[in-house]
Write a protein that binds this DNA or RNA. Structure first.
Length: 100
DNA sequence: CAGTTGACTTGCA
DNA sequence: GTGCAAGCCAACT
């Protein structure tokens, strides 16, 4: 595994419960702004125990072929819109702490 | 080696 | 809100 993948996993482990981040955000935080797709690939091959259910795409859409993800998020208090997407305006993780 | 694919994003209609 | 096109870049055929 490359350093990028390790960086992604490290960041994902720091996502607080009840919050979500986008693949693009992960890529930026790992200092590879254009590697959103590769971030997705890294998570597809993610080690067990990684809270990768807190990662969604820019629209708040969940990972395909993984119905359990929604339940995991709901369990943490994440709310969903009627179209089945995460309400990003409420649950998107702020990379930089808000000023006071 | 060339073409396709994907847990993506942004922009425009 | 939805849908489509282009851009993206490593991994896979």
């Amino acid at each position: 595994m490359g350093e990028f993948d390790a960086e992604i996993y490290d960041i994902v482990r720091q996502i607080p419960p009840g919050r979500v981040v986008t693949y693009g955000q992960l890529a930026r935080l790992a200092q590879r702004p254009r590697w959103a797709r590769r971030a997705g690939r890294a998570l597809a091959n993610a080690p067990e125990g990684l809270p990768c259910h807190r990662v969604v795409n820019s629209s708040g859409r969940l990972a395909p072929g993984w119905p359990a993800q929604r339940e995991l998020l709901e369990r943490e208090g994440v709310t969903f819109r009627r179209n089945g997407c995460v309400d990003l305006s409420k649950h998107l993780w702020e990379e930089i702490a808000p000023i006071a």
